[in-house]
């Protein structure tokens, strides 16, 4: 056996397309390692969330959502995502279009700037807005005179979320659009199509999967953002608490069931986004 193994390694294992015992061993080994890793790092924590949320039974779980502050947090998070995601999608499209299709001075600076929110700590992203619009910020006095509140209010939360999430769509689209090139658009133009027609019938279908993926990522981050929002929100229960912030508060109050119940909802919302994305892709592919 000791002699058989090296010969098997030298002969069979190096021959591609041959189903030897060694081949299947390697295959199962890789699958097992991946699955174990996934279970330890991803599935176990996720399972914990649901186990903890349902620790006192379904009744207690559902009861957590009856709390008006919790309901307000869910509403706030969804409102923010609904406002931020479309705006960032438009911005990401415009930026990717500009970068992929045109040559202009300062292009590399623009690319770097788009990446900036990914590099900066979210706390600083929030601080920036406090420094700008806070009571002692640059526009603080003016805002107070006009009775406008940005910090510790919805606009501040939206701004901070927008800042943190704006790279996602652009980052997805720039390499894709650069790789796909301009030929199809140019063909459409020579065939007589105008700008909108070219965009909706040629460009958009071409980039739709990349765009969808960018939107999903953007949405996930918008709903889950903690650091930047934490700085600008002011943690006012029932008013400026988003779901992640609310989870922390409940947890600190030793309300574990409540905290994990909201956490499970956030997880479910993320899962739902992924399911929607997959479904859209599926139907898209089936139509082809």
């Amino acid at each position: 056996m000791a002699a058989a193994l090296p010969s098997a390694l030298a002969g069979d294992a190096t021959r591609p397309g041959q189903r030897t015992w060694l081949h299947s061993l390697v295959r199962w080994l890789f699958i097992a390692v991946s699955l174990t890793f996934l279970a330890a790092v991803l599935l176990a924590p996720l399972a914990t969330v649901f186990v903890m949320a349902l620790a006192r039974g379904l009744q207690a779980y559902l009861h957590s959502f009856a709390d008006p502050d919790t309901a307000a947090a869910v509403r706030l998070t969804l409102t923010t995502a609904l406002a931020v995601v479309p705006i960032n999608t438009l911005f990401g499209l415009a930026a990717a279009w500009a970068i992929a299709k045109f040559e202009f001075p300062g292009k590399s600076i623009l690319i770097t700037l788009i990446d900036l929110p990914l590099a900066i700590s979210p706390v600083i992203s929030g601080m920036v807005f406090v420094l700008l619009f806070g009571l002692h910020g640059w526009f603080g006095v003016w805002l107070r005179e006009h009775d406008l509140s940005i910090i510790f209010a919805l606009p501040g939360i939206m701004l901070a979320t927008m800042f943190v999430t704006f790279p996602y769509v652009a980052r997805e689209l720039i390499p894709l659009m650069q790789q796909l090139g301009n030929d199809e658009e140019e063909a459409a133009i020579t065939l007589g199509a105008g700008g909108w027609m070219t965009f909706f019938h040629v460009t958009l279908p071409k980039i739709r999967w990349g765009l969808l993926y960018g939107v999903v990522l953007c949405n996930a981050r918008a709903m889950g953002e903690f650091g930047a929002v934490s700085v600008v929100s002011g943690h006012i229960r029932g008013l400026t608490n988003t779901m992640p912030l609310h989870i922390e508060i409940l947890y600190n109050e030793y309300n574990f069931v409540g905290a994990f119940a909201v956490a499970s909802l956030l997880t479910l919302l993320a899962a739902l986004t992924l399911v929607v994305k997959t479904l859209v892709e599926r139907t898209g592919y089936r139509r082809r």
Binding site: D183, E184, E186, A187, A188, T190, L191, H201, V202, P205, K206, R288
Partner: peptide, 13 residues
């Protein structure tokens, strides 16, 4: 005008 490209540039979808 009608233009034909080297790499066809057909609308792939």
């Amino acid at each position: 005008v009608g233009l034909v490209f080297q790499n066809y540039a057909l609308f792939r979808h």
